[in-house]
């Protein structure tokens, strides 16, 4: 790839904006905090722009950015483990009870936020939401394929239990 994949900075920003909502939501699933999630969006934009030469084809841009956003989120989580915050930044209520959102969707979101660990969230999002194959997930997050399989199995089982979700 070369820098010309994005015509200029504005072109990059425009393309990035198209996926920024999604990146924010992904970050929030890990961090459960608005400000940290915004930091992830900024950091992801920074890393994507800085490393844009590494992108082979524009059609991989979204998946690539998502992977970076997940890594950024996990970096913040690691830092959180090493620090004790004086202020309780707490977790945000990310959403308001919305008449448009079904009860099932709210239950599912709460299960994802509350019950899944980092790895489970990663595998779930990448496979179920973004359609990456298990092999692609294995290569993306650098965990063995068999681990990806067992994590996915475990995650769906957990969600099934929490949400009475029917695999079908």
């Amino acid at each position: 790839m070369n820098e010309r994949m994005f015509e200029d900075k504005e072109d990059f920003c425009r393309r990035f904006s198209e996926i920024s909502d999604e990146l924010y939501r992904i970050a929030f699933i890990y961090l459960k905090n608005r400000e940290d999630s915004r930091d992830v969006v900024q950091e992801t934009a920074y890393r994507c722009f800085k490393e844009r030469k590494k992108l082979k084809e524009i059609r991989y841009f979204k998946t690539w950015a998502i992977r970076i956003a997940i890594n950024c989120s996990q970096d913040i989580l690691k830092k959180r483990k090493r620090t004790v915050s004086i202020e309780d930044t707490g977790e945000d209520i990310a959403y308001l009870p919305s008449p448009e959102a079904s009860a099932d969707a709210r239950i599912l979101l709460e299960a994802i936020l509350g019950e899944l660990d980092e790895k489970e969230k990663t595998v779930l999002l990448l496979h179920e939401l973004y359609g990456l194959s298990l092999k692609e997930i294995s290569e993306t997050v650098k965990i063995p394929l068999s681990t990806v399989k067992s994590v996915l199995y475990r995650t769906l089982k957990k969600l099934k239990k929490e949400c009475f979700y029917d695999e079908g």
């Binding site: 924010y24 939501r25 990310a94 709210r106 599912l108 979101l109 994802i112 999002l125 939401l129």
Partner: peptide, 9 residues
């Protein structure tokens, strides 16, 4: 369902 759930955020 996942898309709907995540979209609530």
């Amino acid at each position: 369902e996942l898309r709907e759930a995540v979209g609530i955020i």
